[in-house]
Structures are given as structure tokens and as C-alpha cells.
Design a protein around this nucleic acid. Sequence first.
DNA 1: TAATTACCCTATCTATTTAGTAGGATAAAC
DNA 2: GTTTATCCTACTAAATAGATAGGGTAATTA
Lengths: 136, 136
Amino acid sequence: MLSKKTKYGLKALTYLASQQENTPVQISGIAQHENISQKFLESILLSLRKTGFLGSKKGKGGGYYLIKDPKEILMTDVMRVLEGPIAMVPCVSLNFYEKCDDCPDEATCSVHRLMLEVRDSALEVYRSRTLADLIS
Amino acid sequence: MLSKKTKYGLKALTYLASQQENTPVQISGIAQHENISQKFLESILLSLRKTGFLGSKKGKGGGYYLIKDPKEILMTDVMRVLEGPIAMVPCVSLNFYEKCDDCPDEATCSVHRLMLEVRDSALEVYRSRTLADLIS
DNA sequence: TAATTACCCTATCTATTTAGTAGGATAAAC
DNA sequence: GTTTATCCTACTAAATAGATAGGGTAATTA
């Protein structure tokens, strides 16, 4: 299941990308427009800023804004920051690899090989899509 | 993340499918061979029996066995029983559809459209694979 | 038919994660 | 120096995952 964090994060990013001008948008505005708890959204936007997707401005007229061109923002990067690993098991993860403690041999593990295919198919989608594609 | 239930279930099914003869295999045997908690595996096998994948036999010489040919067991069906929906959000699920309460319009929802693509790509994998493919 | 074997079923428990809340600190604008 | 809006830490309720416990039931075999 996709977490609310990811869902809200994607909606917020899309909303920012759909703005005519890239001027700061307040959290409250995004929260209202996208039906998101403001405080929860606050923490999500904060993490998107810390990971280099958003810039922020304090005080009056402040808010969040996109740092990069939506066309340059790959879904792979967004998903990894918001949701974490794209793979469904750590042993097939490119960026969050971890060995299974119960599995003696990855090469012969049926789950490993199936999940490798699933990961690749998901990656294909995320790699081919940018934030610009999400705007309706 | 793939749940342990699904992981163990897949491993158990693969193990049963890899047997020379389709005679009952005891839970304890599967648990040992696949490094799974026996009691936990018990409940997983029970659900696989109730959903028509496995048959069981009580008493001495008893155990679990496959009811169908591994080639006839699609990963889509196995995954839906073990893991639940293949979609990452209920609003793009074929078998577990649910409307989002926060989203006014699915057609214009950025998350909806992205997750539709991800679901389709996963479905493509699961539909093209059977239990027979998992045997190494 | 009595003992053994192995599945069947319900209940309970603990740790972790998720989603959201509270409250104030900090910095920019006017 | 007051208002505005982000920044940051901590806390909490609820749900879920992943077991574990303990006995019930049915089939086999002697």
C-alpha cells in the first residue's frame, strides 16, 4: 500500500508544478486545495525540502516552491524519498539492498527472482515519468 | 513491502511444486526446509487450502499437497490471496476497488493515474508467471 | 478400539509503523 | 517590533505484522 505520506507528497508536488509562476505557495493553501491535514503536510514538505526537491521562504509571502523544472524530476527519485525502496523485498533493492537472513541463496530463491521482475517493471514506469507528466 | 506471510506462502508453494510426487508433505518438513516458523506457516497453509490452492490430509502420512498443476497457478491469484490487492491504492484496484475519500475526481488525480500505470506493469508480470516458473 | 500422528482453530501478545497532533522556536517582511 | 509562515521536537492513538500458545479434531495403524 502507498502511504498517505507519499500520496500527499505527490499531490503537493503536482500542485506546485501546476502553478503558473514558481512563486512560494503557503502550506495552508496546498493543504486546503488537496484536502490534506496541514500539520501532516508540513512535515512532508519539510522532508521534500531537505532532500532537494523544494525551496522555502519564511515570513509574509513565504511558502514552498519547486527548485527544479518538473520535467527534470523523475518519479524514481520522488518515490524513493517519500515511500522508500521501490522493491518489495530488500534483497532486490538497488538503493536499499539488504540480505535476507532466512534465505541461504538468492540465486535459487523463487521469491527473489519473482520480485526482481516486479521491481524492474515498476522501475520502468517510474523512470519514464516525471513530475511534469502528473499534471492533468 | 512484501509481507512475511506472502514470502513464506510463495516459498511453501514453490517447495510443494518442486516435489517429485504430489504426495502430502508435512508442515514441519516445509518449515524446516524453508526456515519458517512452523506455527506461522500453519496458518498460511490453512488459508491456501481454504482458497483452493492446496489440499490436506490428516493423520499419519498426512500433510499438504497441490491441487492443481503448477503451470495452471497464476501469480495474480496467489498474490491476491496472500498479499491482497496488487494495486498500491484502492482506487486503482481491480479486485478490491474503493473510492478515495479525499479525492474529488479520479480522472484528474495525479496519484491515480501514476498508480494505474504501476498496477498495470505489476499485473503484466504476475499474469505472465505461474507457480511452475518459480521452480529453479 | 486405543494410541499416535498431524492438521484445525481460536485467542492472545508484542513490536513496529502510520497518521496525525501540540506547541513553541526561528526567521523574514512590513 | 509585530505579524506571518516556516522550522523543529515530542507525543499519541490506532492499526498491522508476526508470531506464540494450547488445545480440538480427524485419520491412520496396530
